[in-house]
């Protein structure tokens, strides 16, 4: 029963979504099903919060390696939860200036807004900026001319890099009027528009068929491993 009931729910919800795609009259049922998922995900956030608290509290109490990071995590978690729930520093709505709780929890000027604006966003931007260095190191490894394929890759990458920068126009601009397709920007456009697009579409067709087959396996109950089936 523990496996059968979720399987029935998954199959029914899946069939409804498929049928509703072709039957506009059932569109509302489809939208309702999506809203149910959002509600479930919101409730599951409580489980997530409990997981964070439990795991890091155990780490601190056991004095495991790196327990100091757990203290910072717990402090951040509790402070953010507190300022968000109690709308600390949130200005009231102009219509109700005497009611402190009428403002939106994320309203500008509030503590939660402040923490996002001045802590979360800069930190995430820093993490994202690291990507530039990782791209450089990955490119260095990928473009080493070890064999013929790697040499072709290196040559193509070199063309694209030149063609996408001003250097491409500068180097080959003098014959652009006569042979526009043979300039570096022209060759770049051709590589991206023909070879790259063809490859991407081939991958996309495979992905679409894979999604169809996976969905069918789930709808028919053949693949139950996502439910933790013993047959996996």
């Amino acid at each position: 029963m523990k496996r059968t009931f979720p399987l029935i729910i998954a199959a029914v919800a899946g069939y409804v979504m498929v049928v509703a795609y072709f039957m506009p009259a059932l569109q509302q049922v489809r939208e309702d099903a999506e809203e149910w998922f959002n509600i479930l995900a919101a409730i599951a956030m409580i489980l997530g919060g409990a997981s964070i608290l439990g795991m890091h509290l155990r780490k601190v109490s056991d004095r495991r390696a790196g327990w100091g990071f757990s203290v910072v995590t717990l402090l951040g978690f509790i402070v953010t939860l507190y300022v968000g729930l109690f709308k600390i520093g949130v200005p009231p709505m102009p219509e109700y200036p005497d009611r402190a709780w009428t403002g939106e929890y994320i309203a500008q000027g509030g503590a939660l807004w402040w923490s996002f604006e001045y802590i979360i966003y800069p930190i995430t931007a820093t993490m994202f900026a690291l990507l530039a260095f990782y791209v450089a190191s990955a490119a260095f490894r990928a473009f080493r001319a070890k064999n013929l394929e790697a040499m072709l890759l290196l040559g193509t990458a070199f063309l694209i890099l030149l063609g996408r920068s001003y250097a491409g126009t500068l180097l080959t601009g003098w014959y652009a009027e006569d042979y526009p397709n043979l300039t570096l920007p022209g060759l770049t456009d051709m590589i991206m528009g023909v070879f790259n697009t063809a490859g991407q579409r081939a991958v996309m067709i495979g992905i679409a068929l894979g999604i169809a087959a996976t969905s069918l396996k789930i709808l028919l109950g053949i693949d139950r491993s996502y439910l933790g089936s013993r047959n996996a």
């Binding site: 479930l40 995900a41 599951a44 956030m45 409580i46 489980l47 997530g48 997981s51 491993s225 996502y226 439910l227 933790g228 089936s229 013993r230 996996a232």
Partner: peptide
């Protein structure tokens, strides 16, 4: 995601 955590726990327990 919390739901993924719950599902992964179920899957691992069964495995």
């Amino acid at each position: 995601r919390s739901l993924v955590m719950t599902t992964a726990r179920e899957t691992l327990e069964s495995s």
